[in-house]
């Protein structure tokens, strides 16, 4: 009797030990996977930087600064210059015009997707708007509204709105009528129906347009700043261009690219995950779905 007791006890202990070691090995393997993915990330970056440094040393030209020069320029601009101020000004413009463009783009996209006749009427206009060069809208806005902040923001937003409309419209066209019927039968209030039944179906499309929008908008913002503002990254780049200060130009580019990467990581990815909850969109953002299993 006692014997069997102790044996089961031992057995349990063994099992415990086993699970403990299993979790430990799990953790180490997790760390391994993490460091592996980090390595996969770092190696191409290192190769590029190394290639750049070698080329710069080989050419020994003022127009091709080395990695070291660019980073020292970045450091001096950050510490002594007003790089942070200019970065923030540009970021503010990007954020504001992004929000305006997304808001109007989503609204018009929904309306065009929901009403086929309006869609037909607006389609040719949309094609024209999509193909007007960014430079033209910027110049026209500056000429008509003056060299003011509002003109700059408007110009950027106008450039982005058509592409948002096109993507959201596609989403609004394929909205699931069956789910809307549920809302209709159970007399869900229009407000709740819009936010709980209708809009979630568009999230993947809105997300895709936000993704592409961010990259487009910050490029347009730089042009706007170059042409008609006296602060921001674009303005600074223009100034450095006059002095042929290539190291500073690259330093500013790197800095802003880093900011975009951070936004992507801190804002877009979590949003992706939020949208993929319940894993209802089987494409694109669904890869990050919590419930898809795997990693």
């Amino acid at each position: 009797m006692r014997h069997s007791h102790s044996r089961t006890f031992q057995g349990r202990d063994l099992e415990k030990l086993k699970t403990e070691s299993e979790t430990e090995s799990n953790q180490t393997s997790k760390v391994k996977v993490m460091s592996l993915s980090l390595l996969r990330w770092l190696i191409p970056l290192g190769v590029i930087l190394l290639g750049w440094q070698c080329t710069a040393l080989f050419l020994a030209s003022d127009n091709v600064p080395s990695v070291v020069q660019v980073f020292s320029s970045l450091q001096s601009h950050l510490v002594n210059g007003d790089m942070l101020y200019h970065l923030m000004v540009t970021l503010y413009r990007v954020a504001l015009s992004f929000c305006i463009a997304m808001f109007f783009g989503v609204m018009i996209g929904i309306v065009m997707g929901a009403f086929p006749r309006l869609n037909e009427a607006g389609d040719s206009l949309l094609v024209i708007a999509l193909n007007v060069p960014a430079l033209v809208t910027i110049i026209l806005c500056y000429v008509w509204f003056g060299l003011v902040e509002a003109a700059a923001i408007t110009a950027v937003a106008i450039n982005k709105i058509p592409t948002v409309i096109v993507m959201v419209r596609e989403g609004a066209r394929v909205v699931d009528r069956d789910l809307l019927q549920v809302a209709q039968v159970f007399k869900v209030s229009p407000f709740r129906c819009f936010f709980k039944v209708y809009l979630p179906q568009l999230y993947p499309f809105i997300m895709a347009s936000a993704r592409s929008g961010l990259s487009l908008i910050w490029k347009v913002v730089l042009v706007v700043e170059l042409l008609g503002r006296s602060d921001g990254v674009g303005f600074q780049l223009g100034t450095f261009f006059h002095f042929f200060d290539i190291a500073s130009i690259l330093a500013y580019t790197l800095a802003f690219a880093a900011i975009i990467l951070v936004i992507e990581g801190l804002l877009m990815r979590p949003l992706d995950r939020y949208i993929a909850r319940g894993n209802y969109n089987d494409s694109g953002a669904g890869d990050n779905g919590r419930y898809k299993g795997g990693l």
Binding site: D178, L179, Q181, V182, K196, V197, R277, G278, N279, Y280
Partner: peptide
């Protein structure tokens, strides 16, 4: 069909 909202 059940017609549930997959995101809720």
């Amino acid at each position: 069909q059940p017609r549930l909202m997959p995101w809720l």
